[in-house]
């Protein structure tokens, strides 16, 4: 009896060791926290959130899976359209984006993670959409695309997708600071018949239930976003307008300076989250 136990002990240890080895080898290398299943740390002490969560975290599992599979993600249709437009000549100059920028995978790599940026010639911020139209009018001598048009959404998705997986990293100092501060003031300002600012919902109550929805941190890292409610992708500014209208406030024009300043402030609130364009929401 005791002999048997004596024998079992080293055997048991061996088995345990083997199991452990297998587990270590088989387990996927632990990924860096990306704000999806594990929160990431905010970039500084003065940050409004103690931890950062991508909107992905609050989406239903089916919606998450749909976003993560490029064949299932309905917004990828717009990505394909964007890819086609990239090398299509347009305007009087008969130029395409590709003629100036070459391979988007290289030249557009960081754009989605760093915009909006301060733009010296106009002494204000520009976002990706505005930048696209600037190239169209100035270098291609083509008509600007309307903000929420199919072509604009397609190109924005294509460009921002080149940064997918990169951490959001916007510059808020130097000449951008003034605009950042304006965006911040906008975020705090109460508006509409219900008298809510963005902060009244997204700073204080993220993770809480508001009727059927779970309030997220209102992060911008996945835009343009495909929403089943819209049946198509929509720009970040469309989401701003939707949140304005929700509290019965008059929305601002899409592409307006007010919304672009807000866009910079919002990006900083998610500084370090990964770009997920195009994301999918209900």
């Amino acid at each position: 009896m005791s002999e048997k136990i004596q024998f079992m002990r080293p055997m048991g240890w061996l088995v345990a060791l083997c199991l452990l080895a297998v587990a270590v080898i088989a387990a996927p290398a632990r990924a860096e926290p990306d704000g999806r299943t594990e929160a990431i740390k905010p970039p500084s002490k003065d940050h409004p959130y103690p931890e950062l969560w991508s909107g992905w975290h609050y989406a239903a599992p089916e919606t998450q899976a749909m976003q993560d599979d490029d064949f299932e993600n309905p917004a990828m249709v717009w990505y394909d359209m964007g890819e086609e437009l990239w090398s299509k000549a347009d305007g009087k100059a008969k130029k395409s984006c590709k003629d100036c920028h070459g391979d988007a995978a290289k030249s557009m790599k960081s754009v989605g993670a760093t915009y909006p940026v301060y733009f010296e010639p106009e002494k204000k911020l520009i976002n990706v959409e505005n930048r696209i139209n600037l190239c169209r009018t100035k270098f291609m001598e083509a008509k600007p695309w309307p903000y929420e048009s199919q072509d604009m959404l397609a190109m924005t998705i294509y460009v921002k997708n080149q940064s997918r997986g990169l951490p959001v990293n916007v510059k808020i100092d130097g000449p951008a600071k003034e605009f950042f501060e304006r965006g911040k003031a906008f975020y705090e300002q109460r508006r509409g018949q219900m008298g809510f600012g963005c902060a009244n919902c997204h700073t204080k109550y993220w993770g809480q239930k508001i009727r059927m929805d779970t309030m997220s941190q209102g992060q911008s890292n996945g835009f343009p976003t495909y929403r089943s409610e819209w049946q198509k992708p929509g720009s970040l500014h469309r989401r701003f307008a939707a949140c304005n209208i929700m509290v019965r406030a008059q929305p601002f024009p899409l592409g307006s300076d007010d919304y672009v300043n807000l866009e910079l402030y919002l990006a900083w609130r998610g500084q370090g989250l990964q770009v997920e364009t195009p994301s999918v929401r209900f």
């Binding site: 509409g192 018949q193 019965r248 406030a249």
Partner: peptide, 17 residues
């Protein structure tokens, strides 16, 4: 407070149409 004022019209900004 986050609670809306349900029966007040003054002191509100940019009320929808």
């Amino acid at each position: 407070t986050a609670m809306p004022a349900y029966h007040r019209k003054d002191g509100l900004e940019r009320v929808l149409g």
